[in-house]
């Protein structure tokens, strides 16, 4: 039953896919091929990232991280989140388990929210393509606006969650279940 619940969304989407295939065979077949291809990509991408996360979890000292991403990290925190989010590859949901580890090791929520924002804003290979097709003005506007927005969002989120300790406890509980 629990397994079924976990795969509920998958089953629903499978149903949608079969409907699409019935309605338009080329489109459905195309979707099946694309799904297979991205599943292969993901199965290749996930193991090293999970190993990385798990190594961080086991070996990273709490004090070291607090210095770079803790509440009083200041500029360090911004630079660290920028570096981490820019260099890493992969879709946003890969950043979730990484954030959880960082939070558990004492990173401040402000830098984690900023890190998630950076992850979805500046990816080197993505930005290079953006520059050639949309021009430098577009890139400049997008990157500066998004980074500013996400940093402010981090500040606000930190304030909200600090005032509501029950929520933070809830988050911590979620972490330990991971």
């Amino acid at each position: 039953m629990k397994t079924f619940k976990a795969y509920r969304l998958f089953v629903v989407l499978l149903f949608v896919l079969s409907l699409v295939t019935l309605w338009n065979q080329t489109m459905g077949w195309n979707a099946i091929q694309l799904t297979g291809k991205s599943m292969l990509d993901m199965l290749l991408l996930l193991p090293p990232i999970l190993i990385f996360v798990s190594v961080l979890d086991t070996w990273l000292e709490k004090d070291a991280l607090v210095k770079y991403m803790g509440k009083d990290a200041g500029l360090y925190g911004i630079v660290f989140a920028l570096l981490l989010g820019t260099v890493a590859a992969g879709p946003l949901y890969i950043a979730f388990p990484i954030s959880v580890i960082l939070l558990r090791k004492g990173a401040s929520l402000r830098y984690i929210v900023f890190f998630l924002g950076v992850w979805s804003t500046t990816k080197i290979h993505v930005v290079i393509f953006e520059l050639t097709s949309f021009g430098p003005l577009f890139s400049f506007l997008r990157i500066s606006f998004c980074l500013l927005f996400f940093y402010m969002m981090g500040v606000i989120f930190e304030k909200i969650y600090d005032r509501r300790p029950s929520l933070q406890r809830d988050m911590m509980k979620q972490h330990s279940e991971m």
């Binding site: 998958f10 989407l13 489109m27 979707a31 694309l34 799904t35 991205s38 993901m42 949901y93």
Partner: peptide, 12 residues
């Protein structure tokens, strides 16, 4: 798995 299925659906 569901996310990947959605990627396939989105792209097509």
């Amino acid at each position: 798995m569901s996310i990947m299925l959605l990627v396939g659906l989105s792209l097509s």
